[in-house]
């Protein structure tokens, strides 16, 4: 179920992750408040949410989903040029390569620094459109 928007800004963001009451989603929501509105859904509702609305950026909390690359593939099947950012508390080089191969726009360490977070997402918004094909190797 997609929550109804409360404070719509010019951009719409979607976080696929844990409940909004958790600490980091709250930080993210505050960080992005100046740019637009953040919606939050659990993994099982993500594909439906993306099919219902065109989000400017979708963030995936790698720690809260079972298979990041698989979810990315499903989301990009809905919106081929979707900008996806994968966030994680403990980044690894292997996962970094995996998500970029799958077409991620960025791979970020979860930060509590709101300004830094906002700048990182703003940079993603300013990126040129991604190629539409789902990249990836066996």
């Amino acid at each position: 179920m997609v929550p109804s928007p409360s404070a719509l800004g010019p951009y719409t963001f979607l976080l696929v992750g844990k409940a909004p009451e958790a600490r980091w989603p709250m930080v993210l929501e505050q960080a992005l408040a100046l740019l637009g509105h953040l919606y939050i859904v659990p993994e099982e509702e993500a594909v439906h949410a993306v099919s219902e609305r065109a989000y400017d950026v979708v963030l995936i909390d790698a720690g809260a989903v079972q298979d990041v690359v698989r979810l990315m593939t499903h989301l990009r099947a809905q919106q081929p040029r979707l900008r996806i950012v994968v966030v994680t508390a403990s980044p690894t080089w292997q996962q970094s390569r995996e998500v970029f191969r799958a077409g991620a726009a960025d791979y970020l360490r979860k930060s509590l620094d709101k300004k830094k977070l906002r700048d990182q997402i703003r940079a993603v918004l300013e990126m040129p459109p991604l190629p539409p094909y789902p990249m990836g190797q066996e």
Partner: peptide
Amino acid sequence: HEYEIVREALRALP
């Protein structure tokens, strides 16, 4: 082991 290097190599330039 430096994930930042991977990110710098594979993330789109402006």
